[in-house]
Design a binder for these strands. Structure first.
Length: 118
DNA sequence: GTTGTGACGACTT
DNA sequence: AAAGTCGCCACAA
């Protein structure tokens, strides 16, 4: 079984595990998939993601809450729309962090943290 | 084989 | 705040 395929499967699995309305950064997805420092590669994996079952790719955002697609682009609008449909607000291409912390440098604010109840 | 590019990220100017 | 730089690495040309 080739490593590339299993790595990709791990990425999809991690992304599929993100609950509705929650987000993870590319870097965090990479770490959880056992691919530290390969944030860029996550994009490759998501592009290759199966359409059906489908992975919630819109829950994966940049490290600063930025939607990675160019503003105004089709995919950018779709991602923003999907996130808003799950209750998150997006302002100027940026996903507004969850209320727990307003500090823009606090990654935890928009990173989903698995809690004891999960 | 080399080069440029990109749905990234951490750092430094 | 904005722009560079560098590390990372799959892919296409």
């Amino acid at each position: 079984m080739d490593e590339r395929a299993s790595a990709m499967a791990r990425v999809w699995q991690v992304v599929r595990a993100i609950p509705r309305g929650q987000t993870l950064s590319y870097g965090e997805v990479a770490r959880r998939a056992g691919l530290p420092r390969r944030a860029r590669w996550i994009a490759v994996a998501l592009k290759a993601a199966p359409a059906r079952p489908g992975v919630p790719w819109h829950r994966v955002i940049g490290a600063n809450g930025r939607i990675a697609f160019p503003q105004g682009s089709r995919p950018h609008r779709e991602q923003a729309q999907r996130l808003r449909a799950e209750g998150r607000s997006v302002e100027k291409g940026r996903v507004v962090p969850l209320a727990r912390s307003a500090r823009p440098d606090d990654l935890d604010a928009w990173l989903w943290k698995p809690g004891p109840s999960d």
